[in-house]
């Protein structure tokens, strides 16, 4: 009906003859799926830990999907490790709060405090975090002999690597970088600035394993290297000098 049409706004040289209608926004629908009992993970008691263990194959399936995704997205070994680290980081931030809350509710007389000293933090990771994640403590906790800002946590057989075999061409890759990310997130949340937490194989994979009997016994032995930043180490020394 050209006679009734209003003059088009002068800004457009070629007016849109057939404008695409804007679809009305869909009403919000929660994608959250509920089990038949209508109890989601958010309805669970935060302190109840005994009955909430996940089955290892279920975890392995999810971890498999995570690794396959990052493997297809990235090229290099270090890139995959960084991505796995980033995937674990948010878990660590939340785990600090959750574990402290559980400590508090388990033992209301003694207030649970955030670890403020490096050694306390390492003990917290070595014992509390490991027990919450894998139901056992880590196998060793060591300080680097050469650098004073480096600490090592050793796990002889990381649970995340139970079903994972690294192909020869990327033998440096250790998928426990995910766990390293959890630790990095936890340390950062506790206020310790980190230079990074990385996961390394104790023995060179695929290389000739000759003498080391311990490496033979634990072929999947993994060392988590925690590198604290200068600020964290400086604060630690200041507290120590102040007699704290």
């Amino acid at each position: 009906m050209p006679g009734m049409a209003k003059p088009a706004p002068p800004t457009l040289d070629h007016p849109l003859t057939d404008p695409v209608p804007i679809t009305p926004p869909k009403p919000f629908q929660s994608r959250l799926r509920h089990p038949s009992s209508r109890k989601t993970i958010y309805d669970r008691n935060l302190s109840r830990t005994q009955t909430t263990a996940t089955s290892l194959p279920a975890f392995a399936y999810l971890f498999h999907a995570l690794i396959t995704h990052h493997h297809s997205q990235s090229g290099s070994v270090s890139d995959i490790e960084t991505r796995l680290n980033r995937a674990g980081y948010p878990l660590g931030i939340k785990l600090l709060d959750l574990l402290l809350y559980r400590q508090q509710t388990a033992n209301p007389q003694r207030p649970a405090t955030r670890p403020t000293r490096i050694l306390d933090l390492l003990q917290f990771i070595h014992t509390t975090l490991w027990r919450a994640l894998w139901n056992r403590t880590a196998d060793a906790l060591e300080q680097s002999t050469t650098k004073k800002n480096e600490y090592m946590i050793v796990d002889n057989e990381p649970v995340v690597n139970t079903y994972i075999s690294i192909p020869r061409e990327m033998s440096q890759l250790n998928c426990a970088a995910f766990v390293a990310g959890i630790m990095e997130g936890l340390c950062d949340a506790a206020g310790f600035a980190m230079e990074g937490v990385t996961a390394h194989w104790a023995s060179a994979q695929g290389e000739a394993r000759v003498e080391g009997k311990e490496e033979e016994m634990w072929p999947g032995k993994t060392i988590f290297l925690l590198r604290f930043s200068e600020a964290a180490v400086g604060r630690e020394e200041a507290i120590k000098a102040g007699g704290g």
């Binding site: 194959p57 399936y61 971890f63 498999h64 396959t68 079903y163 075999s165 690294i166 072929p219």
Partner: peptide, 15 residues
């Protein structure tokens, strides 16, 4: 369960 194994291919899995 090994993420680095591609289906139908020869099995070279250390574990």
């Amino acid at each position: 369960k090994n993420p680095f194994y591609s289906l139908e291919m020869p099995v070279r899995v250390e574990k």
